[in-house]
Design a protein around this nucleic acid. Structure first.
Lengths: 245, 245
DNA sequence: GATGTTCGTTTGTTGGACAAGCGAATATTT
DNA sequence: AAATATTCGCTTGTCCAACAAACGAACATC
């Protein structure tokens, strides 16, 4: 007969109100928010209550602090949204197989699209990534961060904001998976080598604006990744490990 | 020569500290957090500072309030993470084309996977969704929410947590796109009808555990969606409109 | 022209305080 | 005895008042 009532604390209303101003365009990226005392006065609340609302906004990525100073409205960036999503997936004990399946859908088509749109600067950025990778490889250091960065670069070149946002949390989670893979004796030498070679092929395809080749090599690259995982007898259905830092 | 220094406010340290406890498993989903005064004592901070940290945690979805009472640790759910991501995409003025492209990668493979795993209860849920849709259709009401729900159902049946998280923000944004589409005279009648028919075909394929048919029909369904958009001479590269509520 | 001083502004932090909602225990009524 | 009312303690949400630290700007000094 009556609807469920749930009280909304004032600090949440503050957050929603400011968010609404932002989403409606009355506050745009770069604009400064009024100072806390002024907000408190406008809302008719204590400064502290307003501050709690601002913390909510801050964590949602809509506003940011500029070097300890006044809060400014921001466009949330996929790189800030991703960690939260990654955390959620870890807590839900996502498996390698799940991550791989989604990447298998997204990465090849990202490569294909990137092939159509890539320009010289972007080619240079990819080449640079590969060069650094070769250096680290020669020095016997880890290339995992560079690998994750490479794939993000390709996705950025593809120029699809939805794709970028969708794939980043997943991409980040390959970090621990790759670490595990390259720590295994069966893969610690050939694995990174094959990875760099695949990136070489992908870059070549992108350079020639060859959609099909880019897609194909990306697909092979992903399949190879999974095969390496299986070769080491890792369980594809086991939860991805927690990455400490 | 020296690294950049940036002061970290205490409330953020509080957030990070508690988050670390959660991610390390020392605090698991369902556990209650200590009360605010106790946290303040342990951290050696004022209660208010701790509260601000808790607001950050709250917005990140790691803790939640149970009916105004004590905070409990939660597993962030994709349905809570999605709105933030959707907002980010709207602010970045994501286009229909971008959303469609990603969905074109994700939805068909989700359907294929769902075909392998679907059980009777899930079939019933889909059938129920379609039945409701037919009702709304007959009553001349909007079927948009049911359409979005249908696709989310299929993704849930696919049983891939990473997929679910990746697609939901995008799926949500088709809401305004569909509204625009079905408001157009060219599509307000045939559009919803074709949509329901496609869902019928998809359900049939899923029922028979026919991966290929499910994938094919989902793909056709998506292509049809785009075609409808083009038919109405809508600009695929225009930013998706802001959805008020 | 570079460095130091002063000062107002704004945020981060603290302390103490109180009302309201909730759970549990206890008292009261029928 | 069962249902209802009262009381009480706990915890959160909110408020008020205050101060330290960082910053920007204007000004003074060397």
């Amino acid at each position: 007969m009556f609807q469920r009532i749930e009280a909304v604390p004032a600090y949440r209303i503050v957050c929603d109100a400011i968010e609404k101003q932002i989403m409606s365009g009355r506050l745009g990226a770069g604009d400064q928010l009024p100072i806390e005392t002024e907000l408190a006065e406008q809302f008719g609340l204590a400064r502290h209550t307003v501050r709690e609302g601002l913390r909510l906004l801050e964590e949602s990525g809509l506003v940011g602090r500029e070097a300890g100073r006044r809060l400014v409205v921001k466009e949330p960036h996929y790189a800030e949204l991703a960690p939260r999503a990654s955390r959620a997936l870890i807590m839900q004990r996502v498996t390698f197989e799940e991550l791989w399946e989604v990447s298998m859908s997204l990465e090849p088509s990202a490569a294909a699209r990137a092939a159509s749109r890539i320009d010289d600067d972007q080619i240079a950025a990819l080449e640079d990534n590969l060069r650094q990778m070769e250096e680290e490889l020669a020095a016997g250091r880890s290339i995992i961060a560079l690998d994750v960065a490479f794939h993000t670069l390709v996705a950025e070149i593809a120029g699809n904001k939805a794709l970028l946002l969708a794939r980043e949390p997943i991409s980040q989670l390959f970090y621990p998976a790759l670490e595990k893979l390259f720590a295994h004796p069966l893969n610690c030498v050939t694995g990174p080598r094959r990875l760099a070679d695949a990136h070489r092929h992908i870059i070549d395809a992108l350079k020639h604006h060859d959609r099909d080749a880019a897609e194909l090599w990306m697909r092979r690259h992903m399949v190879d990744f999974r095969r390496g995982y299986e070769l080491c007898s890792f369980d594809l259905r086991e939860a991805i490990a927690f990455e400490g830092a």
